[in-house]
């Protein structure tokens, strides 16, 4: 799991349906961590988070936050187990959540 150096990505929940989303490179929200923008420096991520706060004010997403990720051969992976479960779906139902869409 612990592949490349630490990067940072931004996640939130979509207001309308609550689904986990990630901030993509173009500033749009995407549903898969693989498509998220990864910032090498935490300061860059914090700056991007400030932009994301605008989408909170526009009532698109709620509870945006920065979390650590790493590059792996399979793409971006979350560094903390909590964020990894968030990015995949419950580990007890492999057919629920985002993991179901990527299988």
């Amino acid at each position: 799991m612990r592949a490349g150096p630490m990067h940072y990505a931004i996640s939130a929940n979509r207001l309308r349906d609550g689904i986990v989303v990630f901030l993509g490179a173009g500033g749009a929200w995407v549903e898969q961590l693989a498509q998220a923008a990864a910032y090498p420096e935490k300061e860059q991520a914090e700056a991007a988070l400030e932009g994301a706060r605008g989408d909170e004010k526009r009532n698109l997403v709620v509870e945006a936050f920065v979390f650590p990720v790493r590059q792996s051969p399979a793409g971006l992976v979350a560094d903390h187990i909590r964020d990894a479960i968030r990015a995949a779906g419950p580990s007890v139902y492999r057919d629920h959540g985002k993991q179901a869409e990527t299988r």
Binding site: N13, L15, D17, V20, R58, N59, I85, G97
Partner: peptide
């Protein structure tokens, strides 16, 4: 009101909680 932006998340939270609606790890 929340979806139209008339209410902030902070103002809405007590109402959704009064109706048993949480925001959890994956969804509501």
């Amino acid at each position: 009101r929340r979806l139209s932006g008339d209410m902030t998340e902070e103002q809405f939270r007590p109402h959704r909680l009064m109706n048993g609606l949480y925001l959890q790890l994956h969804a509501y």
